[in-house]
Design a protein around this nucleic acid. Structure first.
Length: 612
RNA sequence: GGUCCCGUAGCUCAGCUGGAUAGAGCAACUGACUUCUAAUCAGUAGGUCGCACGUUCGAAUCGUGCCGGGAUCACCA
């Protein structure tokens, strides 16, 4: 039984014993005591004093006394207004450290028999990964680690958007402008190589569009279609898509390519495979560097057919309906949404069709209890719709669907816009952050006696810790501002700060030659007490983080614990402690802090260096 | 316009199942390294928690209405 449960039980028993009162509705609010008051846990007794028509101070005193009498874990209490502050006995604190925190399974929960599938990353194959993907990938990885620690069996998957018009644009640009160049011949990371041709297409298309708008035909169309009050610029952006589909030569060629692809033209398919493989190779390098991996990849080119079939079956069973032009729709007006297209009038599939197929295929593969989609919040409507459709189809997993809708990342200069080249590239960003860590480290010179290889490993760990922590510490649902300068900070509320606490501990532990920390120290001071109580909250943090799918809770917890340790390290001598018992206790305490920090940061995909 | 999300210190963020005097980091300023490595610690300064009303013993937290910002409402993905 945990201490919180002890308190709750004691309060209930006390209320029954002294007031013959049984709690029905009100939850008992128990929080860690604020540091300006004395005590370890605080029970808020206001709600009961109201019901019992007792003064809060009196009720608090009665309950406090009752708890102390009944439970030897509690040594003292004080009451301020309606707040009952309880102080644990030193023995209880020590037991907490030795029996709970140092237990081998601390911070992991036994398997709960539930399977969860986490989809993340899921990039398009026409351009390299950027900052937005990094947030997605890091969230995916830490949600996986956290849910696993909480007892779930987790499968990490992606859906690769490997087909469609966007990929055809890259392919077409390569055909038109590359003159047979390859990533190797150009000496460019392969995903970036393909991305260059996507950008090239957009440039050429913009030029073409601009020229057309100024032509006789363009001006005529503008006059005909322009809405009242609409400026030329507004028209230009509104009409762009229609221009692509109806008037553009490049657009026609790209669409022609898509048609060839859908018809299985072997030359097109070969080139498509070849260019996609370049992208996959590039992505793999980035994933590896970020330290993430996936159990299974799904490709749209494999799943859209199942989606189509499902929609056709649904049509036969009248879950969906068909319009006169042959297009298939779902009516979600009863669910508070709209009508949504599922198959085009020409019978081809759309985004939604593919996602239906993908979900069903995943269910066949894993039969998960939950499916978590980590996708930016701009797609909230899409996933609302998808989940309602799957419910309509009576998918067995329909009640376990969850869209972890994280906020987009802004730059200090404003929104990221990939079409305007205003993006932060994932690979470049990692280079920069590692370079910053390297420069900082070399300046300190504390690693000079290590080989260059070991040094580089540490620089990488520090740089990536800075980057990952910077992103993960923000609540995923919130839009965040990414300042590249701050992301390479190594001081303050950062990953390296937490790493530093760990490194300090390692450095101390190494100097103590024995491995036996048993001790009879009982004179536990405030800082030590706070550290132990804080660590005791770790398993609860994991459950909360898993429940809310919020890794930022773990990041902030690790920071708080590291901060408390740094304070301890500064104020309390360890190896030079006044007695052997004290020394051993503090070593034991340090050792457990290191374990919790390391485990917690591992949940975020951040590794600890032994030195820094 | 409909729907949804967000507004906390100069900046980036915690806190939000209602609880004590709203917390961190960065930036600014002051102090602490012959010491278990200072990527650290201690301190100063910085707030109308967007605004208003309501709910109650108590509101940054809940409700309503405004104001400001964003997302979305494609036979795009």
């Amino acid at each position: 039984m945990t201490l919180l449960e002890n308190i709750e039980k004691g309060i209930k028993a006390g209320l029954a014993y002294h007031y013959n009162y049984t709690i029905t509705k009100q939850p008992i609010l128990i929080t860690p005591t604020k540091k300006e008051f004395e005590g370890d846990f605080t029970v808020v007794v206001f709600p009961f004093s109201g019901v019992l028509k007792t003064k809060p101070e009196e009720l608090g005193a009665v309950l406090g006394q009752y708890l102390i009498d009944q439970d030897s874990n509690f040594a003292d209490f004080n009451v301020i207004k309606g707040f009952l502050n309880l102080t644990l006995s030193n023995k209880a604190i020590k037991n907490l450290l030795e029996l709970v925190i140092l237990a081998p399974d601390f911070g992991t929960f036994p398997a709960n028999g539930k399977k969860v599938l986490v989809e993340s990353s899921s990039p398009n194959t026409n351009k390299p990964l950027h900052l937005g993907h990094i947030r997605n990938i890091l969230l995916g990885w830490s949600v996986y680690k956290i849910m696993e620690a909480a007892g779930f069996e987790v499968k990490r998957v992606q859906i690769i958007n490997d087909r469609g018009i966007a990929i055809c644009k890259s392919i077409l640009a390569w055909q038109l402008f590359a003159e047979g160049a390859t990533p190797k011949s150009a000496d460019v990371k392969p995903d970036h190589f393909v991305g260059q041709y996507y950008v090239r297409f957009e440039q050429e298309f913009s030029e073409e569009y601009k020229t057309w708008l100024e032509s006789v035909e363009g001006l005529q169309v503008f006059k005909q279609i322009k809405k009242e009050e609409e400026t030329f610029e507004e028209f230009k952006s509104r009409f762009k898509n229609e221009y692509f589909n109806q008037h553009s030569s490049l657009g026609a060629q790209a669409k022609q390519l898509l048609l060839k692809w859908e018809n299985g033209d072997s030359d097109t398919l070969d080139l498509w495979r070849r260019m996609n493989q370049w992208v996959y190779d590039g992505f793999d390098a980035t994933y590896k560097r970020l330290g993430v991996a996936y159990d299974q990849l799904y490709y749209e080119s494999d799943t859209y057919l199942l989606g189509k079939k499902t929609v056709e079956d649904g049509l036969a069973q009248e879950v969906f309906y068909q319009k006169r032009d042959g297009s298939v729709w779902v009516d979600l007006t009863e669910e508070g949404l709209d009508e949504k297209l599922l198959l085009r009038s020409d019978g081809t599939s759309v985004y939604m069709t593919q996602d239906i197929g993908t979900a069903l295929l995943r269910n066949e593969d894993f039969a998960p209890d939950k499916m978590v989609y980590i996708v930016a919040d701009e797609q909230n409507y899409h996933f609302d719709t998808l989940f309602k459709i799957l419910k309509k189809l009576n998918a067995p997993f329909a009640d376990g669907l969850y869209h972890l809708n994280y906020g987009m990342i802004d730059l200090p200069t404003g929104k990221m816009k990939s079409r305007e080249g205003k993006v932060v590239d994932a690979d470049v960003l990692m280079d920069e952050v590692i370079a910053a860590a390297t420069a900082n480290s070399l300046e300190r010179g504390s690693l000079d006696d290590l080989s260059e290889e070991s040094q580089n490993k540490i620089f990488t760990k520090i740089g990536l810790a800075a980057l990952k922590f910077f992103i993960i510490k923000v609540n995923p649902k919130k839009r965040m501002v990414f300042n590249p300068e701050e992301s390479v900070d190594l001081q303050g509320q950062t990953g390296p700060y937490v790493q530093n606490a760990y490194v300090r501990i390692q450095s101390v532990l190494k100097r103590y030659k024995e491995s036996d920390y048993t001790n009879n120290y009982l004179d536990i001071n405030e800082i030590e007490r706070a550290l132990i109580l804080m660590m005791s909250q770790y398993p609860g943090m994991i459950l909360t983080a898993a429940n809310e799918m919020d890794p930022s809770l773990i990041a902030n917890y690790c920071y708080q614990l590291a901060k408390q340790y740094h304070r301890f390290y500064h104020d309390c001598p360890i190896l030079n402690a006044e007695s052997e018992d004290t020394k051993r206790f503090r070593l034991q305490l340090s050792h457990s802090v290191a374990s919790v920090l390391s485990a917690g940061m591992d949940l975020l995909g951040i590794e600890m260096p032994e030195k820094m």
